[in-house]
Write a protein that binds this DNA or RNA. Structure first.
Lengths: 219, 219
DNA sequence: AACAATCTTGACTGGATGGTCAACTCTGGT
DNA sequence: ACCAGAGTTGACCATCCAGTCAAGATTGTT
């Protein structure tokens, strides 16, 4: 039901420390995602990782330290995705790639996205500094970039800030609200084709919404 | 620091049962929103409502019953907002009104939106039946409506489903991620003007994105 | 084989949590 | 003034939780 790892058997001692820590982090991510920090229990994480709770504490000092590492790992992934918003590309390319990448992340890192959402909803007690520094800087450079596009007449005048929030919201929605989306999809996960269609629709609406023509768009 | 009520003093016995229950529900909503179901404690809710914990149990049998009522209240509000997506209006009017109403809800019912988000992220253990019946029916009628608009050539062909998700995601983001938005706004809540601008930008991008001209749009 | 370092784990602890209860107070009706 | 029912509350309980610990198992090294 739950095979994250498969090369060395979970109980086996041939697993390296790194592998075990990764297995714990993966399970912790899922549990924190589904129940929030307060609702998650070390016992449940231990069970899912197929370890005794005491052993879990051997690898991660405390629940908070474990949570911190989960959140930090997610932020790293987010940062990498953020790079696909290339400052050198044309508006069409930069935005399409960024949106597509974020949609992909929502599919492959559903739980990470949920942990992030939970953390922010709780007022970002752990990652406030990331918001204030890294995220803020990134946001500001992109706002300036979009403003330059607007000044150059490439993009219809919109406030870049609300545009960025729209992209974040729309793409992350597919991870955070996956359960709702799947319920409305007859209880089934979205197919490859549906993910492609959703990505294209999101790209299409946003690009056209700011006066761009999506690449490879018909009539 | 925390005056939800003010006409009759919190401790006063001149408060009606209804008033007390509403005060509890308001506080519970906030606590559940910020910490999720598992992370919330009855003690904290009681403290915020300025009641002894035992008294809280006099009004609400159990934590789960209280949570259920909070979620049901939110769903009711959501349903009312859903009505502003009028099936009789033009695409421009129906969509603009719906988006504007949802943005307004994100501003006035931030905590309700967060509780909903939490519930869905946890797999909707309490409200699965709402998702499967009420939400599904509503969604399907709107999808058919949008398909008729498309068939009539009023709206550019897009898959209505992804459009609806986009509207939900974008508007609810302003409630669920309010903390992030405020951090990026220099730590201040959005002003009236900013809410208006955000609403207009969201409306503008979505309407133009599907080939409509927002009402009262310039050039 | 001997040994030290690393890893594993069942049993435990102190504190928090949801929920209960019996005693108490208040209010409106007579 | 009296009473019954509604509302209030401190003290209490069983359970669960994060975290500890010491005894034991495994591993790499010589």
């Amino acid at each position: 039901m739950d095979e994250t790892q498969s090369a060395p058997k979970p109980g086996s001692r041939s697993e390296s420390r790194e592998e075990i820590e990764r297995r714990i982090l993966d399970c912790a991510e899922r549990v924190f995602a589904e129940r929030g920090f307060g609702g998650a229990t070390m016992q449940l994480i231990a069970d899912q990782a197929e370890l005794p709770k005491a052993n879990l504490h051997y690898y991660f000092e405390s629940k908070e330290k474990l949570y911190r590492q989960v959140v930090e790992r997610i932020f790293t992934i987010w940062l990498e995705a953020a790079d696909s918003f290339e400052t050198s590309a044309s508006p069409e390319v930069a935005l399409s790639r960024y949106i597509a990448r974020k949609m992909e992340l929502s599919r492959t890192h559903r739980y990470g996205s949920k942990v992030w959402a939970n953390e922010v909803m709780q007022g970002a007690p752990i990652i406030q500094d990331y918001l204030e520094v890294t995220l803020r800087d990134w946001t500001e450079t992109r706002i300036e970039l979009i403003e330059r596009w607007i000044a150059a007449g490439l993009v219809r005048p919109v406030e870049p800030r609300w545009l960025l929030y729209m992209i974040w919201a729309t793409t992350q929605h597919y991870a955070d609200f996956a359960h709702q989306i799947e319920t409305l999809n007859g209880g089934r996960a979205l197919s490859d084709a549906q993910w492609r269609a959703a990505t294209e629709t999101v790209c299409g609406i946003i690009l056209r919404g700011i006066g761009l023509q999506p690449e490879g768009a018909g009539a």
